[in-house]
Amino acid sequence: MTAPLLEVQNLTVHYSARHRRIPPLLAVDQVSFTLHAGETLALVGESGSGKSSTATAVLMLRRPQGGSIRFEGHELTSLDERALRVLRPGIQPVFQDPYGSLSPRKSVFDAIAEPLRVQGRWAPRTGPARVAELLDLVQLPGSVAERLPQELSGGQCQRVGIARALASEPRLLVLDEPVSALDLSVRAGIVNLLTELRDELGLGQLFISHDLALVRHVAHRVAVLRRGRIVETGPAREVCDAPSHPYTRELLSSVPGLDRLPTTSPPPAPDLS
């Protein structure tokens, strides 16, 4: 077995109130998990369960109060900003709001080129070709390069956000509800793109979602969070089909109406009354 891409142990995040007498809020409480290259691990749970706090800690956007985060063998929590900057391109986020994640004043081209420029990997000759390659990777036509986010659909914006994340050649994507803000008819396309990229590029994916039907489809493993703790973890299919924790069962039973959607059984003759 190869070493995991990401190894989180006893992660603890709390938010302290401004007032000293109010006790700090324990958002993530002793959370541990591992994630391998080419694997999707889903974090599910309701708002306040600690999903996004965990993601923020893995991205090192906010230093956790305790525990360890090892990425490709580096202990992120003990590194200073300068050392982190070298590793940051390896872990890239994709956010929920496709428009909110892009600057309204930057063209698609500039949005994707920015990480390359910031990381000193921009050359006038190869840069534009790399942007074109990234657009192609997320299945967007080259013609969108000069457009602004407001001229694009939500699904297209989300593809730009993914292309920007891929520009840094990450090994790990942190996907925080990547399709829940998208139109119904474009979600499946983005879900397919994310799975293809994972399989082709061998990316690890930390997939945060509250949509259990979707998680069951895309994830290899699931960790169910409740009030900052993992209450159940295991292969996605097992957790979703035979949950052992009552909270997971409640989450699953709140996915409405799935039993009324069509199955593979053949349809009866059409009623032409």
């Binding site: 119904l184 008819s185 979600r187 499946a188 879900v191 799975t195 039907a213 979707l214 069951r216 489809h217 895309v218 996605a236 299919r237 799935l258 959607l261 199955t263 593979t264």
Partner: peptide, 10 residues
Amino acid sequence: ASLPPREATG
């Protein structure tokens, strides 16, 4: 058709 199916995953 584009909803995640109940039967298969992946």
